[in-house]
């Protein structure tokens, strides 16, 4: 294990309107790990990612990123501010809000420009990112008019153009067709291979099984109830049930949760999975 990238110490967070986001969460994440944050709707996954990205700050406890405490001041003071923004990329749950430029090309150039890269380098990165995600044909299109899957790709490209070491992904598989999902799984493996740390918030268990080796599970009362190997979590039905991540009709085959259709009259047979 290398020096931890994120060190989260017993953080509490509640929104200005009083609704609770997280309560008493602590863990650490090392370089080149792939960690899943699992939890039911409203358990605080997105909130946790916002905190990790230094977009809001815990009411109590602290987050240490790259050896420095994240505070409003530290993330706004150069040179740390720029390093931090360059090294951490965030794929938002809502691509609609993430894409705010008038063309895909501008969208991709936005990050590198804010990081003050020279014009030639910006152009090179835009072109490379477009090629990498195979979206060169979308270059001049307004991002608002793309399909959901295309938007995800553009959003991902816009982050990759900043060359981050850590990528926070919020429900990356939501709304993608099976083929694109498979593509994303492979793409994430590729990123891992290149040394990128991936932190994925999701409730898509099969997606997590394919992409992450460690899991953090948030309960519905916003606490951390599990921190350990993903495989172990995914085969622990009681744990998944208590976090409301699965339905009572779930069974586990080959260490993978599997939901039975709840139609008792239909006979249901299990074929041995060939993996």
């Amino acid at each position: 294990m290398t020096e931890p990238i994120f060190e989260v110490r017993n953080i509490h967070y509640s929104y200005p309107d009083g609704s609770e986001g997280l309560s008493g969460v602590g863990f650490s994440i090392a370089g080149n790990e792939s960690v899943a944050i699992l939890g039911a709707n409203a358990s605080g996954k997105s909130t946790l990612l916002n905190l990790l990205d230094g977009l809001c700050f815990p009411n109590r406890g602290e987050i240490i990123a790259f050896g420095k405490v994240l505070t409003e001041e530290s993330v706004e003071t150069p040179p740390f501010s720029r390093q931090f923004r360059q090294q951490v990329g965030f794929l938002f749950q809502n691509s609609e809000a993430q894409l705010f430029n008038s063309t895909v090309e501008e969208e991709l150039a936005f990050g590198p420009l804010q990081l003050r890269l020279p014009a030639g380098e910006v152009e090179r990165r835009v072109n490379d990112a477009l090629r990498l995600l195979e979206i060169e044909n979308l270059r001049d299109r307004p991002p608002q008019k793309l399909s959901g899957g295309e938007k995800k790709k553009v959003a991902l490209a816009s982050i990759l153009a900043c060359a981050p070491r850590v990528i926070l992904l919020d429900e990356p598989s939501a709304g993608l067709d099976p083929r694109t999902q498979q593509w994303l799984i492979e793409f994430m493996a590729e990123l891992r291979h290149a040394g990128t740390t991936l932190i994925t918030a999701s409730h898509d268990l099969s997606f997590v099984a394919e992409t992450s080796e460690r899991a953090l599970i948030l309960s519905e009362d916003h606490r951390l109830v599990y921190n350990g190997p993903a495989g172990e979590a995914l085969s622990n039905l009681d744990l998944l049930l208590s976090a409301n991540l699965v339905h009572a009709h779930t069974h586990i085959h080959d260490g993978k949760p599997h939901l039975h259709p709840h139609l008792h009259e239909i006979w249901h047979e299990h074929h041995p999975h060939n993996k």
Binding site: E76, Q86, G89, Q114, I159
Partner: peptide, 23 residues
Amino acid sequence: RLGLEVNYAMVSRGYDGDLRVAS
């Protein structure tokens, strides 16, 4: 919320109040 999200998305990619554009 949307305003907050748009702002987050901009800050996350390095926007610090000074908008830099292609030269």
